[in-house]
């Protein structure tokens, strides 16, 4: 099958690029097999695999509390939620695979520490209230991004995001329900909820990535319909939605500069500590090493299992051929 990933040195590159961009403008989806710029493919693989890794690593901070969930219902919900994250990783790896990269290769890059994933998961979950707060804030922030990506120009990525968005809404709701409940609960529960909000608020704001002026990929991603909004736009939407609800619940936010701006209708936030952000991105967050180690261990301990099923399938095929 001819692989049609165009590079600028191709004689017909400009002509094909114009057609490609026109298709995106018309709202058409680009499908595997269609011509696309190699740069479009590269950006997609980068984003989708990062996104997939984030789901898979993201199972760990919440997964750690499954065995300590306080009711049967909460335990069931948390298992379902962490399971969904595995599912979402699974859907996303599938989307990346349609671009000709194997899951083996993507996982190898993750385990070798060469691939990035959302740095929010390098923070620890210290108490049970972190579970509610992650659902409300971290998933709330993720949904903002995912809703945008559901409109993405690449068919397989868009479809994965549509499915993920449909499933993810309950993640957000169960978290919000929990935090609101604890905010009205006993003094200990209230204090636990407030502490969790204090720790997760800033990292959640960092999830949308650097400010627009510091985000070199944004321009081309918007032009090719991969992203339809900038980091700062998505961040502002998130704050406008969540800040008033948290305050309304009688909780506070750890930002002394936070205020509602009459003119723009926006909730304005104080300066984000980008130094902390880059420290965590570059491997120095509290949990970077542990998270990666947990993934490596699971992968290594599962190797014999994967081999066994492959061996079984090979034996079966040989028998089938012999018959």
């Amino acid at each position: 099958m001819p692989v049609k990933y165009g590079v600028p040195s191709d004689p017909d590159y400009n002509e094909r690029l114009a057609e490609f961009e026109a298709r995106i403008k018309r709202g058409e989806k680009i499908e595997p097999g269609d011509w696309m710029p190699e740069e479009y493919r590269r950006q997609l693989i980068r984003m989708i695999s990062q996104h997939a890794h984030s789901e898979v690593v993201g199972m760990l901070p919440e997964g750690a509390w499954i065995t300590r969930a306080p009711t049967l219902k909460r335990k069931m919900i948390l298992v379902a939620k962490v399971q969904d994250e595995a599912g979402h990783g699974q859907y996303l790896y599938h989307a990346a695979e349609t671009l000709g990269v194997s899951r083996e290769a993507m996982l190898e890059a993750l385990l070798a520490g060469k691939a990035k994933y959302s740095s929010i998961f390098n923070y620890p979950t210290l108490t049970w209230a972190d579970i509610g707060t992650i659902g409300w804030l971290v998933d709330g922030a993720a949904i903002k991004n995912q809703t945008m990506l559901a409109a993405c120009s690449y068919g397989p990525y868009s479809r994965a995001m549509v499915r993920i968005c449909a499933e993810e809404t309950f993640h957000h709701k169960q978290g919000k329900e929990m935090v609101l409940l604890y905010a009205k609960g006993t003094p200990k529960q209230r204090q636990m909820a407030q502490d969790a909000i204090n720790r997760w608020w800033w990292p959640a704001l960092m999830m949308m990535g650097p400010h627009d002026q510091d985000s070199p990929n944004t321009e081309v991603l918007v032009r090719w319909g991969i992203k339809t909004k900038t980091n700062d736009q998505v961040r502002q939407e998130f704050i406008n939605e969540h800040a008033p609800e948290i305050l309304e619940a009688g909780l506070t936010l750890p930002d002394p500069d936070l205020r509602y701006d009459e003119k723009t209708g926006n909730w304005l936030h104080g300066p984000i500590n980008w130094d902390e952000f880059w420290q965590v991105v570059n491997g120095n967050g509290p949990m970077n090493k542990e998270r990666l180690e947990a993934r490596r261990r699971a992968h290594a301990e599962g190797a014999w299992v994967r081999e066994a099923l492959e061996a079984y399938a090979a034996k079966r095929q040989r028998t089938a051929v012999a018959v």
Partner: peptide, 19 residues
């Protein structure tokens, strides 16, 4: 419990916080 309707979250619409 995997459906969002399962969670009866009470919250306020954003416009409530605009003066």
């Amino acid at each position: 419990y995997k459906q969002q309707q399962y969670y009866a979250t009470v919250g306020s619409h954003i416009s409530k916080h605009k003066v």
